[in-house]
Amino acid sequence: MSARTDSEATSTQSTTGITPSTLSEALRDRLAAEHVDIQDLSGGCGQMFEAIIVSPQFAKKTTLARHRLVNGALKEEIAAIHAWTPKCYTPEEWEKKQGGS
């Protein structure tokens, strides 16, 4: 991955409109996500994201089915970025992972 300047990062985000907050809002709206944490791993250029997504819609779905659900919900957004890594949990799985009972 090449180094980008701040102006290039701003230009890319303004062109695509993809930011962690726009991705988070889309996931909350489209998947009824209860918790979304989006990290921009590209140094601010908006081209590489990692996400933790917690939604009841993931219940009884395999990892692949969960990823397909997310990718379908974000089809346009994902087409505009370089890399996307979702980590999908049900509310129960997320609570257990966080050390809840």
Score class of each variant (00 low, 15 high):
residue 54 V to G: 02
residue 67 H to L: 11
residue 68 R to F: 04
residue 58 F to L: 07
residue 49 F to V: 07
residue 45 C to S: 12
residue 61 K to D: 01
residue 57 Q to H: 09
residue 39 Q to H: 14
residue 65 A to L: 10
residue 66 R to H: 04
residue 44 G to S: 07
residue 64 L to Y: 08
residue 43 G to A: 11
residue 58 F to A: 01
residue 50 E to H: 11
residue 42 S to E: 09
residue 46 G to P: 06
residue 44 G to D: 09
residue 61 K to Y: 04
residue 53 I to Q: 02
residue 60 K to E: 14
residue 46 G to H: 00
residue 52 I to A: 08
residue 54 V to Q: 06
residue 41 L to Y: 08
residue 53 I to E: 03
residue 59 A to E: 15
residue 47 Q to K: 00
residue 62 T to Q: 06
residue 66 R to S: 09
residue 46 G to L: 01
residue 47 Q to L: 09
residue 55 S to R: 05
residue 49 F to K: 00
residue 56 P to Q: 12
residue 67 H to E: 13
residue 44 G to R: 00
residue 52 I to V: 15
residue 68 R to G: 11
residue 48 M to F: 13
residue 55 S to C: 10
residue 48 M to E: 14
residue 49 F to H: 05
residue 41 L to I: 11
residue 66 R to G: 03
residue 65 A to T: 07
residue 53 I to T: 02
residue 49 F to D: 06
residue 45 C to Y: 08
residue 45 C to I: 10
residue 40 D to V: 09
residue 43 G to T: 08
residue 41 L to P: 02
residue 46 G to E: 04
residue 58 F to N: 00
residue 43 G to F: 10
residue 60 K to V: 04
residue 53 I to R: 00
residue 64 L to I: 15
residue 54 V to Y: 02
residue 44 G to Q: 05
residue 60 K to C: 03
residue 43 G to R: 02
residue 54 V to K: 07
residue 66 R to L: 05
residue 59 A to P: 00
residue 55 S to Q: 07
residue 67 H to Q: 15
residue 39 Q to A: 15
residue 42 S to P: 10
residue 61 K to M: 14
residue 68 R to Q: 15
residue 59 A to I: 08
residue 47 Q to R: 00
residue 54 V to L: 11
residue 39 Q to W: 13
residue 48 M to Y: 12
residue 65 A to V: 08
residue 63 T to N: 09
residue 45 C to V: 13
residue 39 Q to M: 14
residue 60 K to Q: 12
residue 58 F to E: 02
residue 63 T to H: 04
residue 55 S to Y: 03
residue 68 R to L: 04
residue 64 L to G: 04
residue 54 V to W: 02
residue 64 L to C: 05
residue 60 K to G: 01
residue 62 T to H: 04
residue 49 F to E: 07
residue 58 F to W: 06
residue 55 S to T: 13
residue 65 A to S: 11
residue 43 G to Y: 11
residue 58 F to H: 03
residue 57 Q to R: 14
residue 56 P to H: 14
residue 64 L to P: 06
residue 41 L to D: 11
residue 53 I to A: 04
residue 66 R to K: 14
residue 61 K to G: 01
residue 67 H to G: 07
residue 43 G to D: 12
residue 59 A to K: 12
residue 45 C to K: 00
residue 48 M to N: 12
residue 47 Q to G: 04
residue 52 I to K: 13
residue 48 M to V: 13
residue 57 Q to N: 12
residue 44 G to N: 05
residue 49 F to L: 04
residue 60 K to N: 14
residue 47 Q to W: 01
residue 54 V to D: 05
residue 66 R to A: 10
residue 65 A to I: 06
residue 56 P to M: 12
residue 65 A to D: 14
residue 58 F to G: 01
residue 61 K to H: 08
residue 49 F to G: 00
residue 39 Q to T: 15
residue 50 E to I: 06
residue 60 K to H: 12
residue 48 M to G: 05
residue 64 L to R: 01
residue 56 P to A: 14
residue 62 T to W: 06
residue 66 R to Y: 02
residue 65 A to Q: 15
residue 53 I to M: 03
residue 51 A to F: 04
residue 40 D to H: 11
residue 59 A to S: 14
residue 67 H to I: 09
residue 52 I to P: 03
residue 50 E to G: 10
residue 43 G to N: 09
residue 47 Q to D: 13
residue 66 R to T: 02
residue 61 K to N: 06
residue 51 A to M: 07
residue 51 A to H: 01
residue 46 G to A: 00
residue 68 R to P: 03
residue 58 F to R: 01
residue 62 T to E: 08
residue 51 A to S: 12
